[in-house]
């Protein structure tokens, strides 16, 4: 019972942060600012959701696999984000600074 409540809270939190990431992806003004909400999804969203699943699965091989998925996501997502941002900068994409005039 307690297990169910804890996992429900974790999954609800994860779902919330995943959605925030999606909203941010649509709302933010330029590419570089969009990277930040995407990283909310990748860390908090995925972390809470998978932890919620782990609590639901209990001590079993399923939990081990969920941990592996989480560790893998946490190792690869910053690498992918860094590669994206680096490539965009090299390509000459200018970060938005919020200035209405002057800035190119």
């Amino acid at each position: 019972m307690v297990q169910d409540i804890v996992s429900w809270l974790l999954i609800a939190g994860g779902a919330f942060f995943v959605m925030v990431g999606g909203v941010g992806l649509v709302r933010m003004p330029d590419f570089f600012t969009r990277l930040h909400p995407a990283s909310v999804t990748d860390t908090m969203g995925a972390g809470l959701l998978l932890t919620g699943f782990m609590v639901q699965a209990g001590a079993s091989l399923v939990t081990v696999k969920l941990v592996l998925i989480l560790v893998f996501l946490l190792f690869t997502s910053p690498t992918a984000a860094h590669a994206l941002a680096h490539a965009a900068l090299l390509d000459g994409l200018k970060p938005w600074t919020g200035k209405k005039d002057g800035a190119p």
Binding site: F32, L35, H36, P37, S39, V40, T43, M44, L74, F75, S77, P78, T79, A81, H82, A85, H86, L89
Partner: peptide, 15 residues
């Protein structure tokens, strides 16, 4: 260090 910066929402290391 660079990966930790990127992993933290709100900051991304670019180079």
């Amino acid at each position: 260090y660079a990966n930790s910066i990127t992993l933290t929402p709100g900051t991304v290391s670019t180079d």
